Computed example of a mutant assay.
Amino acid sequence: MTKYCDFCNKKLGFMGDGRFELKDGTICHECLVKNGFLTNTDQRKIVDFLKTQTIADIQNLIRDPKKVEEITYKVAPKNHLFSFKKCGFCMQEIGILDASHKLKDGVICGNCTASKALFSDVDGKLMDDFISNKTVADIQDLINNPQELAETKESLTLAKNKTIEAEDKLKIERDNFKKDALKESHFYISNDKRKILIDKTLLSEPRYVDADEIVSYSINEKGHNEHKRHTIARAVTGGIIAGGAGAIIGGTTGGKNNEFIDHLGIIINLTDGSNFEITVLRSKTKSDSFIARGAYSRLNNIISIIDAWKAQTAQPAIKSEADDDIPSQIRKYKSLADEGIITNEEFNLKKKQLLDL
């Protein structure tokens, strides 16, 4: 005999699939799901419970979703093999594999976030970060105030859009910076802008290093001779004081002492005490190969730029004590002239000598 759901009038299967018997009628699987009867519950216990309820009993429960949560938790709690906490809203156990979200003083299960529309129309990660700093009571107040919940979602979305806009602007700036910059791996060196862009990687965000932040640098070279079977490593201090790029590259690098070069880079030290390395060669290469020569050439270009920056910011030469004392010497000779010890002609001659006129 064909049956229909007494709640949605859906025609039910001939074999009884997708239907559940009540005391005086039938309810379909879809109606049970829609109204939360099968949410985080033991289905076998729900079946036994439904057999004791009338159509009117179930209709009364459907009108009060909170009552459905309370009844289903009481009569048909889902038994988890491994559970770690209870939802702070429906009080159902949350299994290890069940969806949940952390709050400041508890957790909320995935079923409650769905039924209470916490994550609808908003970026999931933003809302997840937001509720992680809220208590169960805070979120309950938010749920009880639909307007405040909608405003919160709008605010989170607006903040995200502003962040995206700012990130897009910074990306355009970085792209423009890269156009005329010297590139080495994820490092971009702009001679004109006097900056180094350390571009974004999987482990770090992009940042700029100003030329004035650079204190010094050193060459990090590692190589070996296979027939001697030992490794030679050297770190050579660089900079204007050390003699400049030519002295460094020509005197201590370039593969003259090693048959193979294993690593080549420049370590740049900053005013805040940190440093980073721009690596131009990171694998075993014959020191006289085309690849090695290219690496040394690129390293030399980087050093030349840094040396030029440091030369531009070098302090002017300190004036001699005699130069600083010229006005006092002139006043001394003027006093001698006024006292008649020397003539005015002699004073004027001495004045011209001091002023190099």
Rank of each mutant, 00 (worst) to 15 (best):
F177W: 13
F177Q: 12
K178H: 07
K179R: 09
D180E: 15
S185W: 11
F187K: 00
I189P: 01
I189Q: 03
S190I: 03
S190V: 04
N191V: 05
N191Q: 13
N191M: 07
D192I: 11
K195G: 07
I196N: 02
L197F: 12
D199V: 09
D199G: 10
K200C: 04
T201W: 06
T201E: 08
T201G: 10
L202V: 15
L202I: 14
L203T: 14
L203K: 12
S204Y: 05
P206H: 06
Y208F: 15
V209S: 00
D210V: 01
E213C: 01
I214F: 00
I214P: 00
V215D: 01
S216T: 15
Y217S: 08
Y217I: 05
N220F: 09
H224V: 05
H224W: 06
H227K: 08
K228T: 12
R229C: 05
H230K: 09
A233R: 05
R234A: 14
A235D: 12
V236G: 02
T237D: 14
T237E: 14
G238M: 06
G238K: 02
G239Q: 08
I240R: 04
I240T: 12
I240Q: 07
I241T: 14
A242H: 12
G244P: 03
A247H: 12
A247E: 15
I248L: 15
I248M: 14
G250K: 08
T253S: 06
G254H: 06
G255W: 00
N257E: 10
N257L: 12
N257Y: 05
N258S: 13
N258V: 13
E259W: 03
F260N: 05
I261F: 00
D262F: 00
H263R: 10
I266K: 00
L270T: 06
L270G: 01
T271V: 15
D272L: 04
G273E: 05
N275P: 02
F276K: 09
F276M: 13
F276C: 10
E277F: 03
T279K: 07
T279S: 13
R282A: 13
S283G: 05
K284Y: 01
K286T: 11
S287E: 03
D288M: 07
D288Q: 11
S289G: 11
I291G: 01
R293W: 06
G294H: 04
A295R: 05
Y296E: 08
N300T: 14
N301I: 14
N301L: 13
N301G: 07
I303E: 08
S304Q: 11
I305W: 02
I305R: 04
I306D: 01
I306S: 01
A308T: 08
A308G: 10
T313E: 07
T313K: 08
A314H: 03
A314C: 02
Q315M: 05
Q315E: 14
Q315L: 12
P316K: 12
K319W: 04
S320T: 15
S320W: 03
E321N: 06
